[in-house]
C-alpha cells in the first residue's frame, strides 16, 4: 500500500519537475494529457493515499503512546491485574494488540475517525503549546457505545444477569459501564508505581 503511494508520489514529482523546467512542452496534445495527469490527477490521488495512510497509522497503539503524556497509559496495558480493564482486554487479545487504543477510544459513528482526529488536534496543541491535564479526561465521559460496539450481541455479555437487568440503562448511557461500581478500574495511572507488570513471553 505504502509502496504504491511512494511510486505515485515519485511519478508525480518527476512529471511536475518536467513541467517546472520546461512548461513549453505542454504545447503538444500528448503533453497536455500528461500535464493533467501529473499536475492534477496524480497529486489528487497522492492526497487521498496520504490521508488514508496517516489515518491508518494513527490507529496504531505505538502511534498513540508516542506522545509523552500517553506513555503511562501505554504502560497500564501491561499491568498484571485482571481488574484493570484495558490491561485485561489488551493482554487477552480481546482487542487487536496493535490497535488497542483505537479499539476502545474511537467514535464508531460514520464521521467517528474524523471527529477523533479533530479531538486529537486539541491534544497535540496541549502537548506542544499548553500542557496536557493530569489525569487526562475524556470530554463528555467514556461512552458505553465504545464497549457495546463489541459486547452487544455477545452471548456471555447478554446472558449475564446483571447486564440483562440494566441493559436499557447501559444502551442509553444512563448507567456507565466504568463509573457505576462494576468495571471501575481503567488505566488508573496514579497507581502504576505500586503494581506488578506482565512481561509477554515470560
Amino acid at each position: 500500500m505504502i509502496a504504491m503511494l511512494v511510486v505515485q508520489i515519485v511519478l508525480s514529482i518527476i512529471l511536475a519537475s518536467i513541467f517546472l523546467i520546461r512548461p513549453s512542452v505542454t504545447a503538444g496534445t500528448g503533453w497536455k494529457i500528461l500535464a493533467f495527469i501529473g499536475l492534477c490527477a496524480l497529486p489528487f490521488l497522492c492526497i487521498v493515499g496520504g490521508m488514508n495512510t496517516h489515518m491508518q497509522r494513527s490507529e496504531q497503539t505505538q502511534f498513540c503512546i508516542s506522545c509523552h503524556a500517553m506513555v503511562p497509559y501505554g504502560q497500564s496495558l501491561y499491568v498484571d491485574d485482571p481488574s484493570y480493564l484495558p490491561a485485561q482486554h489488551f493482554q487477552n487479545h480481546r482487542v487487536p494488540a496493535d490497535e488497542a487504543c483505537y479499539a476502545c477510544h474511537a467514535d464508531y459513528s460514520i464521521y467517528g475517525p474524523l471527529k477523533d482526529k479533530m479531538r486529537g488536534l486539541t491534544r497535540i496543541y496541549m502537548q506542544y503549546v499548553s500542557s496536557p491535564p493530569n489525569p487526562i479526561r475524556i470530554p463528555g465521559g467514556y461512552q458505553n457505545s465504545q464497549c457495546l460496539h463489541c459486547h452487544l450481541g455477545a452471548r456471555s455479555f447478554e446472558e449475564n444477569q446483571i447486564h440483562a437487568a440494566v441493559m436499557d440503562s447501559l444502551k442509553s448511557n444512563q448507567m456507565s459501564c466504568l463509573t457505576s461500581g462494576c468495571h471501575d478500574t481503567a488505566h488508573n495511572i496514579a497507581q502504576l508505581s505500586h503494581v506488578k507488570f506482565w512481561r509477554p513471553g515470560q
Partner: peptide, 15 residues
C-alpha cells in the same frame, strides 16, 4: 504551470 509544479513538488516532498 511553473508555479503549479513548484507547489505540487513541495507538497509531495512534505508528504
Amino acid at each position: 504551470l511553473r508555479i503549479s509544479s513548484a507547489f505540487i513538488i513541495l507538497g509531495l516532498v512534505v508528504e
